[in-house]
Design a binder for these strands. Structure first.
Lengths: 333, 333
DNA sequence: CCCTTGCGGACCGTGGCTGTCCGCAAGGGC
DNA sequence: GCCCTTGCGGACAGCCACGGTCCGCAAGGG
């Protein structure tokens, strides 16, 4: 019965949208008798979705957390929010969930009505870059999802690839997987022209549609692809660890610094040592600045240089005449 | 037919997980004849989900983008990624989608199996704070979803509220809506003890379960609640705008700075002016530093002070003896 | 030209679905 | 303790949707 299925879906949607419903309410909304609602609830339970019910005045039905994730029924705004959130997460190249979020994003964007797709694009342009700055991980989420789709569907892919020297080559590959490591995205693929496995940096790829025909996947070059990629990638320059002494008591520092941001150790009564890591020295500088404490660098020496560079740039900015000294003469609108 | 509904759901899931399927494949997966698959596809189409099909060799079925968003069928990893992405988006208080993302997050977390919930918590602790630092918008997403749920379900809410002086009061309210403005979260609610509408800052709320009984919503204090809140909120101190002159040609700056981060204007041949905004002076300092250009401040004067503070702190850090001068003596592990 | 793949009509037997009516059980308010 | 509200689920009867089978047709690719 088509109508039954549709009603089950609507029931699930109602239960997700509002925590608690009475049987009569649901019956009214669905256009059936309360008895049928009870049967539908039973059906949902048989399908594995835990629906809790409580009798008595003020009782009703509510959807609980079960073993399986039920299909998510999002309204327009929520779908847009999910898409934007995923693009942010994917763009930042967060280790550990990066690949899943790209997969989820690809799934969502594939079925996203075009009116919503436009909203996502607009919002994304206006929220993310503000905070991003010239970080090394600026990959276009659109490209990422396209790559993810090709991997998922085993579709040959053609793209322009800029190597680090800046020159471009045309590639035809059988994409195998996207890997996120060291805050960068890499595509592991079989290069059909060179007849070998290659690892491509996603931010240097410009896809050239249309996609080629589907291919039958071959065995991947390694069991653990994440490890395979990070072994092959030589640009580890960005991964830095630092040890910084903060000139505040341990307790005070601990109150401001999340335990997962790094490890804190006491070092005397009124200072402590923070061991932390970041994707690049620049980010590290910001990190120590944001904490808002007096500090000194224990290691590495490069961080001292980075801080000196930052300090000097700020000093020069302060030494320039500034607003009163030099009014803007050549302002162009 | 229960089995039919379940099969439709599985079919939808298959179509979302893999772009293209042949009828025979689907029939095999679903344990029915191809004829029934065709009928199921028809059913999906009748339900409004556009399934495209192409005949001939290499043909098959694929799910397209329709007018309505189909129920999203996510696997475990994807669900975790979505939750983490949403928490990040909600925590940063991004204007425009904040409220929807909290709603979506509440929806998702309500049905999230506990094993996944743990993963989300762990990941969230290890990814977000690293970048967040002590920004003004540090709201616990868990609290946000709890507030959102209470609003959605019209449940009375009890919580501890710290006012700006630091003293705590116990409140009982009928929550109406969460509003995100100026990168902060506010709860608009009817305070039952004070018998009036109040606006609470979400980051000062500590919910005290259990929730009270449900209430019948009254008419909200204003049509446009976002506007109502930002009118009533006096702490605009964090919203700053700045004008900065960058000592590089317009083209060079434009290449590094996203157009939505602010507006760029040429100012002579080898410099340009950036007008931009940020949630706080701290963030603004980071913003100008991240760009990596020589610059000078046009306005506001407070930004000069903030930069001077930052510069001085870095200077002091550089002047301290550092690694060689003072080896760590009292290191505690 | 042939192959593969999707399309959909016709037929038929099965059995699931809904509404109706019923008595039972569990909370909450008076 | 009483009563109301709400959820629970068995039984029954009528309906009709469902799925398998068999068929010829159409469209794309080699």
């Amino acid at each position: 019965m088509l109508e039954t299925s549709a009603r089950l879906l609507r029931l699930l949607s109602l239960l997700q949208a509002h925590r608690e419903w009475s049987g009569a309410d649901l019956a009214g909304r669905l256009g059936v008798t309360p008895r049928t609602v009870r049967r539908d609830v039973d059906r949902l339970r048989e399908l594995g979705y835990p629906v809790n019910a409580s009798p008595g005045t003020g009782g009703g039905y509510q959807l609980g957390a079960g073993a399986e994730l039920p299909p998510l029924l999002l309204d327009d705004d929520e779908a847009v929010a999910v898409a934007v959130g995923l693009r942010t997460a994917a763009g930042q190249g967060i280790e550990g969930i990066g690949e899943s979020s790209v997969r989820a994003l690809a799934k969502l964007e594939q079925v996203l009505p075009s009116r919503l797709r436009r909203r996502v694009g607009a919002l994304n342009a206006f929220t993310v870059p503000m905070l991003r700055g010239p970080q090394p991980s600026a990959v276009d989420p659109t490209v990422l999802t396209e790559l993810a789709n090709a991997c998922r569907d085993s579709e040959r892919l053609r793209f322009e690839y800029r190597d680090h020297a800046g020159s471009s080559t045309r590639r035809t590959v059988e994409p195998y997987r996207l890997v996120c490591t060291e805050h960068r995205w890499y595509l592991v693929a079989w290069d059909v022209d060179r007849d070998d496995w290659r690892t491509f940096r996603a931010d240097r790829i410009t896809p050239r549609p249309p996609h080629g025909p589907r291919f039958t996947p071959r065995t991947p070059p390694a069991e653990n692809l994440a490890e395979y990629v990070s072994r092959g990638v030589s640009t580890r320059a960005y991964a830095t660890n630092a040890v910084v002494r903060l000139l505040v008591p341990l307790e005070e520092a601990a109150a401001r610094i999340s335990p997962s941001a790094g490890t804190l150790e006491a070092s005397g009564n009124d200072s402590c040592v923070l061991r932390t890591g970041a994707a690049s020295l620049d980010v590290m500088v910001i990190h120590v600045m944001l904490m808002g404490f007096e500090f000194e660098i224990v290691e590495p020496a490069e961080l001292v240089d980075a801080i000196r560079t930052a300090r000097d740039r700020l000093s020069r900015a302060l030494e320039r005449p500034g607003p009163e000294g030099a009014p803007i003469t050549a302002r162009v609108t």
